[in-house]
Structure formats: C-alpha cells, structure tokens
Design a protein around this nucleic acid. Structure first.
Lengths: 228, 228
DNA sequence: TCATAGACTTGACATCCATCAAGAGCCCAA
DNA sequence: TTGGGCTCTTGATGGATGTCAAGTCTATGA
C-alpha cells in the first residue's frame, strides 16, 4: 500500500509543471519525502507563526492565504488553486509562517519536505530555475495586490481589480469570480458592504453587469479611467 | 581601462554575499556582463512598466522602490540599501517592471545582465539557492509591509511599524530612521501629516520619544497592544 | 415543497483620515 | 548672520468608508 502511494505520488509529481523536467530517479526521491494532505472545507492548514512543514502544492480545491487581524477580521493575500504552490518563503528562511492558510473547499495538497527539496535543488538546476520563476510570479502577484489595495477610494480599488484580469484585447469581457464576494472584498481591503455598493454603482453607471458571481465588464476603458 | 574596470567588478562581486561562493572563473564571466551604474540624488533608475535591464545590486546609497499613483502621489514598497538586490522578478519572468525605482541619495549600483545570470544559475546550484533565499526574504518583507498597511487605524500602523523592528529582547530601544518621514509615511500608506500627528500622540502618551530622525521606543509592550 | 443558514444587499450613522493651509524648525550656502 | 528652501508640525474641514442593523436572496437538504 505504502509503495503504491509513493508510486502514485511520483506520477502526480511528474504531471506538475514544476517537476516535469526531473528524471524518474529524482522524482522518486522527492516523492519519498512528500505526503498527501486532504482538507475539508474551512479547515485550517496552518496558522500565522506556525513552524512550516514544507512546500505546499495544491492538487485540487482552493487555499486561502491570509493575514489574521485582531478579532476575526482578516486580510486575504492570495488564493491558491490547482497547480499553485506556497510556503516556499518559510522553507528557505528559518522563519515561521508569515501567513495563515485555510481551505475554502475540500482540497488535496502535496507537502514536500524542506530538506528533500533543498537537496533536489542542489542537484538539479532546472528545478531551481523553475522554482525561482514561481517565486517571482508570486512576488509580482503580491505587488499587484498591493497596488490594488493602496488605491485611494473604493471605486478605484474595484476598478483596478477588474481591469487587472482583463484579456489582452477587447473592451468587454466576462469574468467568473472563483470565490465568494466577502473574500474578494478582503483581498481589496474593503468591507463587504462597500464592495457590494461599488459593484452596484458601477452597474448602474453601465460599466459592468453583475449576475451572482459572474461579472461582465462592458467598458474596460471607462474602468481604466478610475484605476489610474 | 576596460579590463581594469572588469577586474574591479570581479572583485566587487566576490565581496557580495550573493556571489561569494562562486569560483574565479564564474565571477569573471558574470563580471563581463555586469555594469556599474551611478545615480544622483533623486535620479530615476527605472519607471514602472519599463523593460527590465537586469538584476540590480546596491553597492552604496539607497534606492526607493515604489508604486507611482495618479498625479505624483506614490506608495513606497521597499527601500534598498547596500547589499540589497532587486529587479529579479522582472528578470525571470518576461514582464515589465512592476515598480519604479529612484535614488534617494547619490548611489552606486551593479546591473547584471539577465542572460548571464540565468546561465550562471544553470551551472551553479549554490547561486540558485542563495538567490532563492533572497527572493524569499523579499517576499516576507513585502508581506510584512502589507501587514502594516492593512492595519485599521493610523496608530495601529505606526505601532506595528515600530514594533516590527524591535530587537529580540528588551522593552525599550532606540531606532534611527534611514529616510525622511515622508517616505516612512508612504510606506505605511499614511499622509505625512497623519504620521506626524501619530508620532506626536504616541510621544505625549509616553510610548516613544522622538528626536528628529531618531525614535526611542520606551514601552514596546504597550505599543504591541495597538499593533494587534 | 419548505425550512434554515449563509451570502449578499441596502440604509443610517459616526469616525477617521486626507486635504488644504499656514506656520515652525532646520540645514546649507552666501 | 541672513536668506531660501525643504522638512516637519499643527489646525480646521469635509468626505469616504467602516460599522451596525435589518432585510432580501440563494442554496442546500429534509
């Protein structure tokens, strides 16, 4: 049974973009130090300040990474979906987790041991490069999020958020939110009520059209006016 | 002359923590693709959206990394001092610079060509690991900054900022600001006036003592009460 | 089908902060 | 010493947004 699990983890790893380039031997080694982890909806994966268990890779589901604030309020920093990884920062520095992580739905993760990962990186430069690219990507996402959050005015923040995920071309597009609106509001550092009001206002003014968790952007250029 | 410069760059690199582990051959190769860059006070290094020139390492002086906002207002994301590097994110992704960079005083930098750096990483795993640690460190700094910025209330933000840089032990310590207060205010996402008022209030209440750009924290625990 | 819980919306209100404006302190150079 | 420019402080004001509260909508399961 154990062997079979390991074997399947090897396979799973080989399908992940991050590990695709590794040879079978290396994959097997990593798989030996990797465990699957299943989470129920709303289950906490780790808390801010915890000792990191390793690098996390999301197989399925969705993980919310957030800064807890005094008394329940929280600021969502990032939502990690299938293929995304997180927790590298705690692995490569000797620090506790700077964020908390919680599943927003039933999820399946891989947790890869810190030491095994470091060893693999020392042997395999391709892996280093791939992981580096990932880290850079996360850094940019963080900066994007920050840019959104520091916009003055709630309308600007929402407009910036909506325009950020615009396709390369076209002045209108449809957008399916991948979480509830409270979570989006938290990402924008807004109260849910304010977010709701802004969406209402942008709707009334004809910039967007909201249907539940689907948002149609009708006038991208108009929105960009706000975003600055 | 040229050779001499290269030679000196090789030496300079060998003194940087990031490159210390490399052998002479590799250093020389990197040095060939590295240029020195001198900036006057207030000179722009690059703008948001520029095509990245490579990885930057600060030799001396200070570089302000910030998000420009519509009409002059800006949000300072990070201050880079001697030994710090930045711009990796733009090097490893094919993206434009997500931040703008400006010298706050006369500064000297190294700019290392993207391709040369990538090549070196492929040959030398030690370098990968070192750079990865750096990226993680920057990520954590960003998260810290974010945590400060999302605190509700100006007093909380300032308190959080001040307690963040507390030494490991002790309830009081002295703190020398490395920039003017406007810049600090911008890092906290506060108007300079508000920052000034908060410092005044914390002084009056006996938590801190301000003398120009030196701040004595008298009651760390008290401040932590605010920071949450 | 209905009931219940959670998500979302809408309204009223008070607070906090950015803005504008003016003045004080500081540094540097002439 | 004096002057000019910059940084910082202090004051007054309005508007934006968080909070509380109530109500509507939606989904899920019995």
């Amino acid at each position: 049974m154990m062997l079979e699990t390991r074997h399947s983890i090897t396979e799973i790893l080989s399908r992940q973009p991050l590990f695709r380039l590794l040879d079978g031997m290396e994959l097997a080694r990593l798989a030996k130090c990797t465990v699957e982890y299943r989470l129920n909806k709303n289950e906490m994966l780790f808390h801010k300040g915890d000792v990191p268990r390793g690098m996390h890779v999301v197989m399925s589901g969705q993980i919310k990474l957030f800064l807890p604030s005094s008394l329940g309020s929280e600021k969502v920093v990032q939502m990690a979906g299938p293929g995304d990884s997180f927790g590298e920062e705690a692995v490569f520095l000797n620090k506790s987790c700077p964020l908390a992580a919680q599943a927003t739905r039933e999820s399946l993760l891989l947790i890869m041991d810190k030491q095994a990962l470091c060893d693999a990186l020392e042997r395999n430069c391709m892996l280093s490069t791939a992981l580096m690219a990932r880290m850079c990507s996360r850094l940019c996402d963080l900066i994007d999020n920050m840019e959104t959050c520091v916009q003055r005015g709630s309308v600007q923040r929402v407009a910036h958020y909506l325009t950020q995920m615009a396709p390369a071309a076209g002045n209108s597009y449809e957008l399916a939110l991948d979480t509830n609106k409270q979570t989006i509001a938290s990402q924008l550092n807004l109260a849910p009520e304010t977010f709701s009001r802004v969406l209402g206002r942008l709707s009334r003014d004809g910039y967007i059209e909201v249907n539940g968790r689907s948002i149609k952007v009708l006038d991208l250029r108009g929105l960009r006016q706000f975003g600055g």
